[in-house]
């Protein structure tokens, strides 16, 4: 087994024992279960789940990631005094977080669909898109948490920064876009709005998912423009590329800093 895989394994042992992770799995399990049982149609349940996923997955990923990484300082120092490179350590730390969190999300979210089944209103592709987007958001926000923990020595400051970033991407950003849209309502805003959506991973995920529900008609002309852009293969490719950048840029910056860091 490679050194990175070993580091990941030790961390996995630790993370899986954490009550947070069990709570996270149960949360999605209960939520998906309840929504599937009590919604009129499967597609409504899925739509409600979507909104919760876009809100909760980034929050839990960035906060859990940041907290865990600060608490893993001893573990990191201990291993870095062994024949372990900084790159191996960094990769091990990240993978040891991504795997359990993604697994917790997929299991919690997916299981009720398996044992309760779905009605004909839900297409498998839509469900898989939701699961895939949730997993991607987990990976992105954990990468950001790693960057925060590497760059900020102070735990409280780092945690504050993590929550501020979540607020900005998951809550405030939408309001700002809305404000912009109403202020400049007389102008053709479709292109700038498209650009703004691409900048924020949460919004990008939201647009990608909503378009799968055939409700973009509700979004008016802008929705039509989005449908045209993201509906095509170019748009989907661009969206996936942007999400990938959101993953790779924090990881790259984090690793660069991690390699120079003094312990």
């Amino acid at each position: 087994m490679s050194t990175t895989a070993k580091i990941m394994k030790y961390e996995l042992h630790d993370v899986v024992r954490s009550r947070w992770l069990i709570g996270y799995t149960l949360f999605f399990l209960l939520l998906a279960d309840a929504l599937l049982r009590f919604s009129d149609t499967g597609v409504k349940a899925l739509l409600s789940l979507l909104n919760v996923v876009l809100f909760v997955v980034p929050l839990v990923s960035i906060v859990f990631g940041t907290m865990y990484l600060y608490n893993a300082r001893e573990f990191t120092e201990l291993l870095l005094a062994q024949p372990v490179s900084r790159r191996q350590m960094f990769a091990g730390l990240y993978l040891g977080l991504v795997l359990p969190l993604v697994a917790a999300f997929l299991v919690g979210m997916g299981l009720p669909f398996v044992y309760l089944g779905m009605d004909e209103t839900v297409r498998y592709a839509t469900l898989f898109a939701l699961l895939g987007t949730g997993a991607a958001l987990t990976a992105v926000f954990l990468a950001v948490s790693l960057l925060i923990a590497v760059r900020t020595e102070d735990k409280v400051k780092g945690l504050g920064l993590a929550i501020a970033l979540w607020l900005l991407t998951a809550v405030v950003y939408d309001g700002l876009v809305l404000l912009l849209a109403t202020t400049f309502a007389d102008y053709p805003l479709e292109q700038p709005l498209l650009g703004l959506m691409l900048l924020n991973p949460v919004d990008l995920a939201r647009v990608l998912l909503l378009l799968r529900f055939d409700i973009s008609a509700l979004m008016g002309y802008t929705g039509a423009v989005f449908q045209q852009f993201f509906g095509g293969s170019t748009g989907t490719l661009v969206a996936v590329a942007v999400l990938t950048l959101w993953l790779l840029v924090p990881l790259y910056l984090g690793l660069r800093r991690f390699r120079r860091k003094d312990f």
Binding site: D14, R17, A72, E74, E77, L78, P83, V84, S85
Partner: peptide, 20 residues
Amino acid sequence: DFGYRARIGYMPQIARFPEN
């Protein structure tokens, strides 16, 4: 390089270990 650390044993001043 990091391979050279396979030849070193280190006892830090304050024993800080993963607590669990």
